[in-house]
């Protein structure tokens, strides 16, 4: 185990623990705050895997924007302060599918990668990523901008009040 491995394991445990808290807590707002911990831990994993630009985008967009939007949704739907006992559906199917997915994927990854070690990659800086995007992925990039515009217009149309002109 190298230092990177130890750090990856520790941060991974934090991410998984916080994710468990997200799906198990009875407080709506706390679920959002645990989500911040998970997303932050994943950003640290990105940094440890030398995906520097992806890590900062993760912090900016996910922790900065997506979580704030989710907390807005919690507030605007008049969520109660304190525990809400009626957040969950029956346990059986969810546990079955979740455990099956987890076991299957984990077995697959352990089977394929078992003890394989790879060299530390070159840092994925903004410059290298920018060159990759604008050399090879220009069309998907442009299509994404159209998608963002469509989502923006869709959100505005959906949240307009009925009968407003």
């Amino acid at each position: 185990m190298t230092v990177s491995d130890v750090l990856l394991t520790a941060v991974g445990l934090v991410a998984v623990g916080a994710a468990l808290a997200v799906v198990m807590t009875e407080h709506l707002v706390r679920a959002g705050l645990w989500l911040v911990v998970t997303l932050g831990a994943i950003a640290v994993e990105f940094l440890l895997l030398r995906a520097e630009f992806a890590a900062w985008v993760q912090v900016l967009i996910y922790v900065g924007a997506v979580v704030v939007l989710l907390l807005f949704a919690v507030m605007l739907t008049r969520a109660p302060i304190g525990p809400s006992p009626d957040l969950d559906r029956p346990l059986g199917p969810a546990l079955l599918v979740g455990a099956g997915t987890g076991l299957g994927l984990s077995t697959l990854f352990v089977w394929v990668f078992a003890d394989r070690q790879v060299a530390v990659p070159e840092t994925g800086s903004a410059q290298r990523l920018g060159e990759a995007i604008f050399a090879d992925w220009v069309l998907p990039f442009e299509v994404l901008s159209v998608l963002l515009l469509a989502a923006l217009i869709g959100a505005i149309v959906l949240s307009r009040r009925e009968g407003a002109s």
């Binding site: 994710a19 997915t101 990668f113 003890d115």
Partner: peptide, 20 residues
């Protein structure tokens, strides 16, 4: 050196928790 199996296992568990 990095063992890729560690982040991959983390991701598998996160995906399973998300499905749950």
């Amino acid at each position: 050196m990095i063992r890729p199996v560690i982040p991959l296992l983390t991701a598998a568990l996160l995906f399973a928790i998300g499905t749950y």
